[in-house]
Amino acid sequence: MIKVEEKLFQNRYRVDAGRPHIQIVVPDVCQLKCKTKPCTYCCPAACYTQEGDGRVTLITDGCLECGTCRIICTDHRNVQWEYPRGGYGILFKFG
């Protein structure tokens, strides 16, 4: 098992506390309607976690702002995706 947290630990972020730039629109859709939950394995920062009861939880703190989850939610379009407010989010040192 690869710990992506160890990778993200090297990165620099300015987290916009309490104002996540990505939100799940209707949580029930993830839990009840989405069978494959591609966000839980495609997100390169593992922001999406599948819980035991099938719920999907999203924590955007480690987000790399790539847009994968926005595009990959093809069946349900259940991701509300904006860029963080100016100056917040990932701050690449090297890019």
Binding site: V4, K7, L8, Q10, N11, P44, A45, L64, C66, G67, T68, I71, I90, F92, K93, F94, G95
Partner: peptide, 9 residues
């Protein structure tokens, strides 16, 4: 020494 991890489309 790994100093940054990134992803991009």
């Amino acid at each position: 020494e790994m100093k940054e991890y990134s992803a991009h489309l």
